[in-house]
């Protein structure tokens, strides 16, 4: 770093330079490149043989039209919405329940149970799916011959892996928020005759609403992009297609069938959906955290 860098005006930009360079190289350029690819396509002339027979040309919104008209992609969206709704409801429900239970008086084994329930956070999604995947196999399952990986059950079995992996982190976020509430509020409520259940319902849960929204939006973004779990489970069952989730279809388009352009268009659609969902959350949370410096 040069000697006379301590001119206050330039300093913040110098300090931010590494982050800005990384942002441009690994976010802005790839996003721009995806947007570019999404409006291109290959034009094949003649038999498509030899140099110059395949040209990349401007395609307008054709790839988007194809993505929106693609029945398999819609089916993927429907599967992921069903899966995501299930994961979100169960995972956040359990996370809230556990956080409230941890925050009650006279709870035993609080430390042990808190650490245990948070533990799956440290387990890679691939490892979690492998463990549950083997537990689902009739030849190994302690639950007998139940068809966990049949067409009807596989969504629930996959949701179980996500709930198992995600509940602890969300529980800890909610619990940390609860710990920051001054205890006086509860004392005041007790003096007014409120029971623990009323305190939970009328003070704690309203206090947790912003944190629940925050964890909810992060979970929605994660479930829209589900890829690791179905991909890892696929070798163990034939009920998960290579296009089970939209992300898996993008991967297949890009790397198996080699249609980068439609993969790019589908990527942009997923990005747009994530952004729309996230903006609501930013509006709710942003000013709360950074209202002042």
């Amino acid at each position: 770093m040069p000697e006379r860098v301590s001119r206050p005006r330039a300093v913040p930009y110098v300090f931010l330079a590494p982050a800005i360079v990384l942002f441009v190289l690994f976010m802005a350029v790839p996003i721009g490149y995806t947007a570019y690819l999404s409006v291109r396509r290959t034009k094949v002339s003649g038999l498509g043989l030899g140099r110059g027979a395949r040209k990349e040309i401007f395609a307008g919104l054709d790839n988007y039209a194809a993505a929106i008209g693609d029945g398999e992609l819609w089916a993927g969206w429907l599967r992921v919405i069903g899966y995501g709704a299930l994961v979100l409801a169960v995972m956040l429900g359990f996370a809230l329940l556990f956080a409230l239970m941890l925050d009650t008086k006279h709870v035993h084994l609080a430390r042990f149970t808190r650490i245990s329930i948070f533990l799956p956070y440290a387990v890679p999604g691939v490892a979690a799916t492998l463990m549950w995947g083997f537990l689902y196999l009739p030849s190994l399952s302690p639950f007998g011959d139940r068809p966990f990986l049949s067409a009807g059950a596989v969504t629930f079995s996959m949701a179980n892996v996500a709930v198992w992996g995600g509940t602890g982190f969300n529980m800890l976020v909610l619990y940390t928020t609860l710990r920051a509430v001054p205890r006086d509020y509860y004392e005041a409520a007790r003096i007014d005759g409120a029971g623990e259940l009323q305190i939970a319902l009328k003070i704690k849960i309203p206090m947790l609403i912003p944190a629940i929204i925050l964890t909810g939006v992060f979970s929605v973004i994660a479930t829209i992009q589900v890829f690791t779990e179905p991909t890892t489970l696929r070798p163990l069952t034939n009920t998960i297609s290579s296009t089970w989730s939209p992300l898996m279809k993008i991967y297949r388009d890009a790397f198996v069938t080699g249609d980068l352009y439609s993969a790019a268009a589908t990527s942009m659609v997923i990005a747009a959906i994530s952004l729309v969902l996230s903006f609501g959350f930013l509006r709710v949370v942003k000013n709360r955290a950074f209202g002042e410096t």
């Binding site: 359990f94 329940l97 556990f98 239970m101 941890l102 009650t104 008086k105 006279h106 709870v107 035993h108 084994l109 609080a110 042990f112 149970t113 808190r114 245990s116 329930i117 533990l119 799956p120 387990v123 979690a128 463990m131 549950w132 537990l135 198992w164 509940t167 602890g168 007790r190 005759g193 409120a194 029971g195 623990e196 259940l197 009323q198």
Partner: peptide, 25 residues
């Protein structure tokens, strides 16, 4: 409503949660 309306229930819920998470590990 008493001061401890749930008794052992919170502990039981958390222990069940811990059993579920520790089971595959």
């Amino acid at each position: 409503a008493t001061r401890r309306p749930f008794g052992i229930a919170p502990t039981a819920v958390l222990v069940l949660g811990a059993i579920y998470t520790l089971f595959p590990v």
